[in-house]
Computed example of a mutant assay.
Amino acid sequence: MSSTVMIAGVVLIFAALAMVIAALVLAPKAEGGVGRSIAVLEALTSAPAEMKTELDAPFGERVLLPLLARAQGLGRKLTPADANERIHEKLELAGNPAGWTADRVSAGKVVGFFGALAVSLLISLAMGLTFLPTLGFVVAASVAGYMAPNLYLYQQAYDRSAKLQKALPDAIDLLTISVESGLGFDASVAQVARNTDGPLAEEFARLLQEMQIGRGRTDALRSMADRTNLPDLRAFVSAMVQADAFGIPIGQVLRVQSSEIRVKRRQWAEEQAQKVPVKILIPLIFCILPCLFIAVLGPAGISIMDNFSGKVG
């Protein structure tokens, strides 16, 4: 009985295999996975040039740019009406970094908010934090991601202001020498823009371009002052505007401004030198003195402990 069942099972297995083979042979020739892939490749190679151009575009153009466009639209909806003006002012103070516009700053805030939200949530789940710590961490990270573009622009404006402060005395000296040697104000500004570099040279070049396209000297100077937050440069622009309005010789005004800025620079250097003892006090107390105490009093403390413990006779 058992041998009969075994033979019947073998027969059924071979019959099933025969049916499968027959079905594969007699079935209509449909394109398999490899055939479909070859067909897709042939379709792509024979596709029109417009489709090839669209498919050959890099990942950034196909995915990132549309995502950025949607983020810009969402940023416009979430941003107040007067926020673009404030962003434009921050961009001017930062020197208009390449690729940065008001819409991109708003989009960067949206992307930073949701990106920091997702990353902080994943980190919280990975660390196994409870609800309240997770909530606090996620909220803090989301706010930081939202404020990241503003912080970047603030840092750029601060660095640019420091460069302007450093280059201003030399630029005004060169401007004074050029005017006193017989050049006009426009030619002197061109000399400063040509022979110096950095953000101050860019500002003088832009000042010259605005005057060359027909804008008044007073308006161009005031626009340069509005693009910076440096008090010394604003004072220089104010003096030049008053000299132009009252007909005072420019060379005399430049000589006075050069002397005053040199004095202010010397005073600024002395001020920074006076701040050094105060700034070094905290690392001295918390970093240097403990190491010094350990090196000096450590052996004495070990000897005292050995004496009290009775190890030394």
Results as ranks from 00 to 15, higher is better:
residue 30 A to L: 06
residue 18 A to N: 02
residue 75 G to T: 07
residue 86 R to E: 12
residue 40 V to A: 13
residue 46 S to T: 15
residue 27 A to E: 08
residue 110 V to R: 01
residue 70 R to S: 12
residue 43 A to M: 03
residue 19 M to K: 00
residue 42 E to V: 07
residue 73 G to Y: 00
residue 37 S to E: 07
residue 123 I to V: 15
residue 106 S to E: 12
residue 77 K to G: 06
residue 120 S to F: 00
residue 77 K to A: 11
residue 76 R to T: 12
residue 87 I to V: 12
residue 32 G to R: 03
residue 17 L to N: 07
residue 22 A to E: 13
residue 89 E to Q: 14
residue 92 E to S: 13
residue 98 A to P: 11
residue 98 A to L: 13
residue 109 K to F: 02
residue 42 E to F: 01
residue 50 E to D: 09
residue 12 L to G: 10
residue 75 G to F: 00
residue 47 A to H: 03
residue 70 R to M: 13
residue 57 A to I: 06
residue 110 V to C: 02
residue 42 E to R: 12
residue 67 L to W: 08
residue 71 A to M: 04
residue 102 A to I: 07
residue 15 A to Y: 00
residue 71 A to L: 03
residue 41 L to D: 10
residue 119 V to I: 15
residue 15 A to D: 04
residue 99 G to F: 04
residue 26 L to D: 12
residue 42 E to T: 09
residue 81 A to W: 09
residue 90 K to F: 08
residue 78 L to P: 02
residue 56 D to Y: 02
residue 65 L to M: 14
residue 15 A to V: 11
residue 83 A to S: 09
residue 110 V to I: 14
residue 55 L to M: 08
residue 54 E to D: 04
residue 18 A to I: 08
residue 95 G to N: 07
residue 45 T to Q: 08
residue 105 V to L: 02
residue 25 V to N: 12
residue 94 A to M: 02
residue 48 P to K: 14
residue 102 A to T: 15
residue 13 I to M: 08
residue 46 S to G: 08
residue 94 A to T: 10
residue 26 L to S: 14
residue 110 V to H: 04
residue 96 N to L: 12
residue 97 P to W: 09
residue 120 S to Q: 03
residue 110 V to N: 01
residue 38 I to E: 11
residue 96 N to G: 05
residue 115 G to F: 01
residue 80 P to Y: 02
residue 115 G to T: 07
residue 101 T to G: 05
